[in-house]
Nucleic acid binder design. Structure first.
Length: 303
DNA sequence: AACCAGGCGCATG
DNA sequence: CATGCGCATGGT
């Protein structure tokens, strides 16, 4: 590997690349990255170009390699920012650990999941589409549907017998064929939602930076839930994963409720006061608490 | 076969 | 404002 294609990012305290690998793998077939051994491969669109990068850990650094694409200074700077945001490397999570340790029911997480970071979805359009696909269906089916969508409408880069995809552009999905989406096993509603959201991104009525610039969490949430297909769960998930909003809690999320139940924090999903009480203890770290609770869910191993 | 899955929108009280 | 219900479809 030519050294000019290589980028090193120092690993901060309380950061586990193994946990990144676990999360990105976890027995689901995500079409937007490929993991081989201890290395992540992902295609990224920068302007008109598609780059293929690999990421692995080595000697206290994340080592990025640009496998395909130009190793210009601009591209390198973009990739550094991208990966730091993706793996939330710039947050000091020690205060979150201090809070976890005050609650005996979940204090173990500081050791068991030590260094787990909130893995993001930088692309807000992708995050929202992923939510719509995943609404009220099981995750393994959701990943299948997402793969069909991405492999049909997304751009691709090939390398050594593997194809790497980027999520489709809003302009492309805005013009998607509803009959084809139906074949991909979108429900009529979800097909309408995805195309509607794609149009909203294409015409600028949803824009990540404009959303980020709104004055309050409530305003950002409302700006999202004003669109058909984005409810409370989706808005919070998107804010949590794409804007890294600390206060994003996907209320009603079945996985979250199951995790709370597993830890005997609630007995059934109606105990909203207990849930609110817990999250109040974690003010400023709500989304991290959600992510750690999701991490605690055991995942069925697929053959 | 019935029930559930990382919900949402709309109609009612 | 809270609750109920239909929606679609794969998995168990």
């Amino acid at each position: 590997m030519n050294s000019e294609n290589k980028i090193l990012i120092p690993i901060p305290a309380l950061f586990s690349f193994e946990e990144c690998l676990w999360f990105l793998n976890r027995n689901y077939d995500d079409c937007l990255h490929i993991i081989k051994g201890d290395t992540i491969f992902k295609a990224l669109e920068i302007g008109e170009d598609i780059l293929l990068i690999s990421i692995k850990e080595h000697a206290g650094f994340l080592e990025l390699n640009i496998i395909k694409g130009e190793p210009t200074q601009e591209n390198k700077a973009y990739l550094i920012d991208y990966v730091r945001e993706w793996f939330d490397m710039d947050t000091n999570i020690q205060p979150f650990y201090d809070l976890l340790k005050t609650d005996g029911r979940i204090a173990y997480m500081t050791e068991t999941y030590k260094g787990l970071r909130l893995i993001g979805i930088s692309n807000l359009f992708e995050a929202i589409c992923w939510c719509i696909i995943g609404q009220q269906i099981n995750l393994s089916f959701a990943y299948k549907v997402k793969r069909r969508l991405v492999e049909h409408y997304g751009k691709r880069i090939d390398h050594e017998n593997d194809s790497y995809y980027v999520f489709p552009e809003p302009e492309v999905l805005a013009a998607a064929d509803p009959d084809l989406l139906k074949e991909m096993q979108f429900s009529k509603q979800k097909s309408d939602y995805v195309i509607g959201i794609a149009k909203a991104f294409a015409n600028g009525s949803i824009d990540k930076e404009a959303l980020r610039a709104l004055p309050s969490f409530a305003a950002r949430k409302k700006a999202l839930t004003d669109h058909k297909g984005i409810g409370v769960w989706t808005a919070n998930y998107a804010l949590m994963k794409s804007l890294k909003e600390p206060g994003g809690i996907p209320h009603g999320d079945i996985g979250l409720l199951n995790a709370l139940s597993n830890h005997n924090i609630i007995q059934d999903r109606s105990e909203t006061a207990k849930i609110e009480g817990l999250f109040q203890q974690f003010a400023g770290w709500e989304s991290y608490l959600v992510f750690y609770l999701w991490r605690s869910l055991t995942v069925k191993v697929l053959e």
